[in-house]
Nucleic acid binder design. Structure first.
Length: 722
DNA sequence: CGCAAGTACCTTTTT
DNA sequence: GGTACTTGCG
C-alpha cells in the first residue's frame, strides 16, 4: 500500500517534510489525524526509522489508541515500540524510570483533582486558614496555573494578603505532596522538565533516542509542555507540531496560544504547512462556521474550502423553554431516524455546561430514546471506585495520606475525626507519616500512651495498620486480580458497599473496575499494580466513548473536539451560556467562547441545528435569555429558521425553510461572502462579518483591523476583495 | 462516634 | 436543583 497515495498535495507535503521543524496548521476536518498517522507510517515504512525513535504526543488516551490502531493497519511492523500517549502519560513513564535523580519516589502515586482539593484543604487546616475565605478550588487553580508556567511558591508574588496566603498554601501543599510521595497532574510535566534541566545526562539519553517528535493539538499545550518538547527535540530538531489556533479552547487550563506563535520564532527555519481543504462538512455549514470564527480579532486568517456539496444551511430553532428545547431535539432526531435520513448514532447533542445535560436526559428517557452521556457521573469519580483505588494506592505507597484518610474509616472502623486529628498531630510530632505512626502504634501498644486516645481507638487504628500491612505483603506475591479481590474482601469493603441502599449498582462499578484491572493481570506482582494505578489516573471520560455509537451522543462542546457527527445539535445558543456569562466581560475569553462555538459547528458533516430557548431555569430561578451573539455573526442567507411551534409535529417545517433557503441563495450568490477579506480605500483591510439583502441592494458589515466594525450598502461602498 | 436532617453553597470547560 | 458540609441528637 502506498502511504502517500490517498493524500492531497498539502497533506503529502506535511507527511514528507520529515527533516527539521514543521508547523502544520490544520483546519477542522482537514484530515489532520490522517496526516499524523500517515506521517509516522511514512517514517517507519518508507524512511526506515526505528519505531523506538519516534515519539507521538496526543491530547487524549483515546486519540493515542486510535492512532495505534490505524498504524497497525498501515505498518505491518510492530508499533509497540513507539512512544505514543498524552504528555502526562509519557512524563509519568519517564519519571517512573528516571525521576529518582531529582528525588521523585519510584512508587509515586498520581493525585487527581479531588485528591488535590483534599490536600489543599489539609494545607489550609495546617495553616489555620478558613476554607470559606480561601476557596480550595480557587487556590487549586492558582497553583495549577503557576505550575503550568514552571513557577514554584517562591516565584509567586506576595504583595497582597491573598497572594501571601496563596504562596503559603502552595508551599504547604507541596510539602504534603512530598510527604505522601504523590505528584499531581501538573507535577508530572513540571518535574520532567526539571529532571531534564538538572540532569543533562538523562536529557541527553532521551534526546539521542527521539529522532522524530510529533505533537498533536498543539494549540492546547501549555508552556511546560512546549518546554518539554523543545528540550526533547534539542538534538535532532525533527519536531512536527500540528494544531489549529481557531480550535484552542483550553486556555483556562493554561493552554497558551502563544506556543503556536512562538514556534516560528523558536524555530525560524520551520516549514509551515496549511491544511485548508475540509473533507467533513457541507459548504453552507463551513461558511456559517467561517463567519463565526472570522469575528475574532486575535487570529490568523485561514481560507477553508471544500469540494463537498452545498447542503443545507444551519437551522436556528427558537423554543420557549429548555424543556421545549429538549423535546424538540428528541422529536427531531426521531423524525430524522423515521425518515431514514440518519441513524440515531449519527446524532450528537452538544452543550456548553454539564448542567444542561439533565433536562436533555429527562427528555430522552421520557421518549424512550436511548442516548449516551459522555460526561455523566464520571466513572473514576464515583465514590466506590475512588475508594477501591485508594486502597490499591495505599498498597503501592502507604505514605499516600490522602488515600489513607479516605479509607481508614470506610467501612466504619470506629475511627472518627477526632482520632484522626490526633493521629495527624502525633505523627507530625514524631516526624513520620501517618502510616508509619500507625505501624508504631500497632507494634507497641505502649507508645499509644503518649496519645490522648482511648484504648478502643488505638485498637481500631492498629487493626487497620495490620490489615494494610498484610495486603502489602501479599501484593508482592500475587497478580493484580488476586490482589484486587483480597483488597475488596479483606478490607470488608465488599460487605460494606453491597449493604448500602444502592449497593448493587455500586458493586457493579467495583466489578467494572476489576474488569479494567484484568488488562494488567499478566504483569508481575507489583508491576501490575503500578500500571493499573497509572492507567486509571490518566484516563478521562472521552476515552471511554465507544467507537461506533448506536445511540445519540450527549456531549459537552469541549469534549466534542476531534469528533465528527453527521447531525449536530448545539443547544443553549444564548447569551450567558454560549458565551458563558463568566466570559462575557473579558475579550480574550469571549474569543475562546467563539472558538468553542466554532468547534461545535465544525463537528457536523451534514446538518447543524442551533437551538435556543427564550426562558431557562438556572439554579431554581428562571431567566429570560437573549440569543447568543454568535448567531448574529451568521448572515441571513446562511441561517434557516424554525420558529416556536405549539404542536411538536410541526417542528419539521424548519427543514423545509432550510431547503428553500439553500435553493434561493443559490440563484443570487452574494458578491462578497461573510468571512472573506476585503479592502476599503479609507479603512484598510478587514473581514466581512455579515452580509444580507436589503431591497435592491445588500448591506455588508465589515470588521476592519484596528478601526472597528462598519456597515455599508454594497452599491455605494468602495470595497474590493483581497 | 455515627447518623439524620438541615443549611449554605454553588454552578465552565478536564489531562 | 443538587450537593457538600454542618449541626444536633442518640
Amino acid at each position: 500500500m502506498d502511504i502517500l497515495a490517498e493524500l492531497n498535495p498539502a497533506q503529502k507535503a506535511a507527511v514528507e517534510a520529515i527533516n527539521g521543524p514543521v508547523l502544520i496548521l490544520a483546519g477542522p476536518g482537514s484530515g489532520k489525524t490522517r496526516v499524523i498517522t500517515h506521517r509516522v507510517a511514512y517514517l517507519i515504512r518508507v524512511v526506515g526509522v526505528n519505531p523506538r525513535r519516534i515519539m507521538a504526543v496526543t491530547f487524549t488516551n483515546k486519540a493515542a489508541r486510535e492512532m495505534e490502531e490505524r498504524l497497525n493497519q498501515l505498518v505491518s511492523a510492530s508499533v509497540k515500540d513507539l512512544t505514543l500517549g498524552t504528555f502526562h502519560a509519557i512524563c509519568a513513564r519517564i519519571l517512573r524510570l528516571d525521576g529518582q535523580a531529582i528525588g521523585v519516589d519510584k512508587k509515586f502515586v498520581i493525585y487527581d483533582d479531588d485528591d488535590q482539593i483534599a490536600l489543599i484543604k489539609r494545607s489550609l487546616q495546617d495553616l489555620a486558614l478558613d476554607p470559606k475565605q480561601f476557596a480550595p478550588r480557587a487556590l487549586q487553580s492558582v497553583i495549577s496555573s503557576a505550575k503550568s508556567q514552571m513557577l514554584g511558591p517562591a516565584d509567586l508574588p506576595g504583595k497582597s494578603y491573598f497572594e501571601e496566603v496563596t504562596r503559603r498554601v502552595y508551599e504547604r501543599y507541596q510539602e504534603l505532596l512530598a510527604a505522601s510521595s504523590a505528584l499531581d497532574f501538573d507535577d508530572l510535566l513540571m518535574r520532567t522538565v526539571l529532571l531534564f534541566r538538572k540532569q543533562k545526562d538523562i536529557l541527553a539519553k532521551y534526546q539521542a533516542r527521539y529522532l522524530h517528535i510529533q505533537v498533536d493539538e498543539f494549540q492546547d499545550t501549555n508552556l511546560v509542555q512546549y518546554e518539554l518538547i523543545k528540550l526533547l527535540a534539542g538534538k535532532y530538531r525533527n519536531i512536527c507540531v500540528v494544531g489549529d489556533p481557531d480550535q484552542s479552547i483550553y486556555s483556562w487550563r493554561s493552554a497558551d496560544i502563544r506556543n503556536i506563535l512562538n514556534f516560528e520564532k523558536d524555530f525560524p527555519d520551520a516549514r509551515v504547512v496549511l491544511l485548508e481543504q475540509n473533507y467533513r462538512s457541507t459548504q453552507l455549514i463551513l461558511d456559517a462556521a467561517t463567519c463565526i470564527i472570522s469575528a475574532n480579532r486575535q487570529r490568523k486568517p485561514k481560507d477553508l474550502w471544500t469540494k463537498n456539496e452545498k447542503g443545507l444551511p444551519p437551522l436556528l430553532i427558537e423554543t420557549y423553554s429548555e424543556d421545549e428545547e429538549a423535546r424538540f431535539v428528541v422529536n427531531e432526531i426521531d423524525n430524522l431516524v423515521r425518515a431514514g435520513e440518519v441513524r440515531s448514532g449519527d446524532c450528537a447533542v452538544m452543550f456548553r455546561t454539564n448542567a444542561q445535560s439533565r433536562v436533555l436526559e429527562e427528555a430522552f428517557i421520557r421518549y424512550g430514546m436511548p442516548y449516551k452521556l459522555v460526561a455523566g457521573t464520571r466513572f473514576y469519580e464515583r465514590r466506590e471506585v475512588k475508594d477501591v483505588i485508594a486502597y490499591l494506592r495505599l498498597i503501592q505507597n502507604p505514605n499516600d495520606t490522602v488515600s489513607l484518610m479516605r479509607v481508614i474509616n470506610v467501612p466504619q472502623r470506629g475511627i472518627g475525626e477526632r482520632s484522626l486529628d490526633e493521629l495527624t498531630r502525633w505523627s507530625r510530632e514524631q516526624g513520620v507519616s501517618e502510616y508509619q505512626a500507625l505501624r508504631l502504634l500497632a507494634e507497641s501498644a505502649d507508645s499509644g500512651a503518649e496519645m490522648p486516645l482511648s484504648a478502643r481507638t488505638v485498637k481500631a487504628l492498629a487493626g487497620f495498620a495490620v490489615m494494610l500491612e498484610r495486603l502489602i505483603e501479599r501484593s508482592r506475591e500475587v497478580d493484580i486480580m488476586v490482589l484486587f479481590d483480597l483488597v475488596v474482601e479483606g478490607s470488608g469493603y465488599k460487605q460494606y458497599i453491597t449493604g448500602l441502599i444502592d449497593g448493587e449498582e455500586r458493586w457493579e462499578n467495583v466489578q467494572e473496575l476489576r474488569g479494567v484491572a484484568q488488562d494488567y493481570k499478566d504483569l508481575k506482582p507489583g508491576e501490575g499494580l503500578t500500571a493499573l494505578l497509572e492507567g486509571v489516573a490518566l484516563v478521562s471520560d472521552v476515552d471511554s466513548l465507544p467507537e461506533k455509537q448506536e445511540t445519540v451522543t450527549l456531549i459537552t462542546l469541549h469534549q466534542a473536539k476531534g469528533l465528527e457527527f453527521p447531525v449536530v445539535f448545539i443547544v443553549g445558543m444564548e447569551e450567558g451560556i454560549i458565551p458563558h456569562y463568566k466570559s462575557i466581560d473579558d475579550p480574550a475569553q469571549l474569543e475562546e467562547e467563539r472558538r468553542l462555538c466554532y468547534v461545535g459547528i465544525t463537528r457536523a458533516k451534514r446538518k447543524v441545528y442551533l437551538v435556543r430557548a427564550f426562558r431557562r431555569h438556572l439554579m431554581g430561578s428562571s431567566a429570560v435569555n437573549k440569543p447568543s451573539r454568535f448567531l448574529l455573526d451568521i448572515p441571513e442567507h446562511l441561517l434557516a429558521r424554525g420558529g416556536v411551534r405549539e404542536k411538536e409535529d410541526e417542528w419539521s417545517s424548519a427543514s423545509i425553510d432550510a431547503t428553500e433557503k439553500a435553493i434561493k441563495s443559490d440563484e443570487d450568490l452574494p458578491v462578497v461572502k461573510a468571512g472573506e477579506h476585503v479592502r476599503h480605500d479609507q479603512f484598510g483591510e478587514g473581514v466581512v462579518v455579515n452580509y444580507h439583502k436589503v431591497k435592491n441592494d445588500a448591506e455588508v458589515v465589515v470588521a476592519f483591523d484596528g478601526v472597528g466594525v462598519k456597515r455599508f450598502l454594497l452599491s455605494f461602498a468602495k470595497i474590493d476583495k483581497v
